[in-house]
Each structure stands twice: as C-alpha cells, then as structure tokens.
C-alpha cells in the first residue's frame, strides 16, 4: 500500500484517476481504517486529503456556509455560525461515534461511505445541501441526495472526490433537527433516523418542510409526502400522527441484527415526528 498526503485537490484527483488498483480517499479515516482492519478493503493507494489547503475550513458563502471535506465533527460542533443556522446538521454529524471519533470523522466521509444509516446524511438531505465534487473533468455541484447509490456505493466517478459541502442560507424563522433510534445512548449505528428542516410563516404555521429518513432504505429517503402533511400546520398531535404514517408508508428497510423491518418502520415515523417538533420549537424560538 502507498500513502500520499496530497497537497492540492488536483494532485489528489490525478492520483486517484491515474491509479489502476484499489484506491481510497482518507479524510477522517473512521470508516476506512475499520474496513482495513477487518480486511474488508485492502487498498493499494490511500490519498490523505487533510493537508489540502481549504479542506479543513468552514467559510461563509452566499449567506450560508461551505464546509471543507476534511472538517471534523468536533470542529463543526465548535462553529457558532453553523450551529445557529443548521443545528440539525450539526447534531446529526455529532452523533457519529464517540468523542474520539468526532475528533476525526467528516461529513463528506460519512456521505461517501454510503451507509444507509450514516447519521450526517439525513439532515444534509433535509437541508438541501450540495456537495462540490472535483474530478478529472472539472468541478460540479451535486445535491447530497444524489451522491449515495446504495449501501457502500456512490454516484461519483473514478477520480472524483467531494471537496466541500455547501449549507445554504436560511430565512430567520427556520430550523432543523435530527433524531436517530439506537438501543444504547451512544456508540451505535442508527436503527432508524430522521432529519427535518422547516421554515415557519409569519403566523407560526409551517411554510415549507423537508423530511429525510435514514436506515430504512438502501439510501436516505426524502419523505416528500411527510413534508407536505406538516406544511401549513402547527404540528398538532393529529398532524404528527399523519406525518409519521406518511413516513412509515415509504420505508423499505431490511431485517438484520440491528432491527426488524417492523421496528425500523415504526421508529422512523416516531423519530420524524419528534424531530419535526424539535425543529418547529427551535424555529419558533428564533421568531
């Protein structure tokens, strides 16, 4: 195996594009090193992108924030601006692993690992965040939703890397939230999860909402119907029950050691309605 700490994104792209064997990008390494330890992957080339200028920066842009691909959970969690604007994105990302893992893990890595249960992804989908992808043919912006192709697979082409994630600007009365279900309080993979981002109208009703569900399908689901159900409401119990039902209706989970189809479906709805409530209260508090 060869290890290269790339100095520029161009260098990283060139290395990855030009390599014929198994190549992997190393950002936080919290998935890659585990896979290497277990023998799941034996890369011939590992390209470390943490030393590329800008990769560890969080930069204000167009009223929102651009988060470099190598920004760790701990770093994002310490950024007051992002925490205020996108609390749900931060809390989703910060739920990954332990404090120790937070010192290393990255959102881009969580996204590109393409686990249906990745905790950073539902909130990013709900936030309509956009990944900037650089490859041999240049740079393109891709909605987060379109990056994962299935468990462990992405839509990125050979040589392409995510260099940053853009969190768009928000109106004042807006907030988001993320909840996942795990059997313990920490250190587990989500059994079902939900990210909810919403904007309130001046009268305190929901003006628009995006709901995303994790761990209940091969990729994160955007629950469009659930978002519609809560739009125009104040999230009374009856609305939330309908929203949960709308979420359950689109779940296509698997049975495995972490949960049953029935359980995942049920808890996805519960997480969604609870996350919606939190986002709603947060947005209301800002108003």
């Amino acid at each position: 195996m060869q290890y290269v700490a790339a100095k520029t994104a161009d260098e990283a792209v060139a290395l990855l594009a030009g390599h014929s064997g198994t190549a992997r990008v190393l950002a936080g390494g919290t998935d890659l090193l585990v896979q290497m330890k277990s023998g799941m992957v034996e890369p011939d080339l590992v390209v470390d992108i943490k030393r590329i200028a800008g990769m560890r920066d969080i930069t204000p842009e167009a009223g929102g924030f651009r988060v470099g691909a190598a920004v760790s959970g701990a770093e994002l969690g310490e950024h007051a601006g992002v925490c205020a604007m996108w609390p749900g994105v931060v809390e989703g990302f910060n739920l990954i692993g332990s404090t120790q893992v937070q010192g290393r893990a990255t959102m881009a890595g969580n996204l590109c690992n393409a686990s249906p249960a990745g905790d950073a992804v539902p909130s990013l989908v709900a936030a309509a965040a956009v990944a900037r992808v650089q490859g041999p043919n240049g740079t393109r912006d891709v909605p987060i939703r379109d990056i994962p192709a299935g468990p462990g697979r992405t839509t990125l082409s050979k040589g392409e890397i995510v260099t940053s994630i853009f969190l768009p600007a928000r109106p004042a009365r807006a907030a988001d939230a993320y909840l996942r279900f795990i059997p313990r309080t920490e250190m587990d993979i989500a059994v079902a999860s939900a990210g909810v981002s919403l904007v309130l109208a001046a009268d305190g009703t929901v003006e628009s909402a995006r709901v995303a569900l994790g761990a209940v399908a091969p990729t994160v689901l955007l629950a469009e119907e659930a978002g519609k159900v809560i739009t125009g409401t104040r999230l009374d119990d009856e609305t939330l029950a309908r929203m949960a039902a709308a979420c359950e209706a689109i779940c296509k989970p698997i049975d495995d050691k972490r949960g049953t189809i029935e359980f995942r479906t049920r808890t996805a709805g519960v997480m969604a309605k609870r996350a919606a409530r939190i986002a709603y209260d947060r947005a209301g508090a800002k108003a």
Partner: peptide, 24 residues
C-alpha cells in the same frame, strides 16, 4: 450473541455487541 441462519456470529465486535456505555 446473535447467530444468522448460516450459523455465523453476526455481531463479533463492541459496535453490535452492546455493553453498557457511561451515558446509559
């Protein structure tokens, strides 16, 4: 200990063999 239909142990690690953590 969770065994699959194939008789293999499904959770041989601290991630899925869930011993209590401090926050529990």
């Amino acid at each position: 200990y969770i065994y699959g239909a194939d008789g293999k142990l499904q959770n041989p690690g601290f991630l899925d063999y869930r011993i209590p953590v401090a926050s529990d």
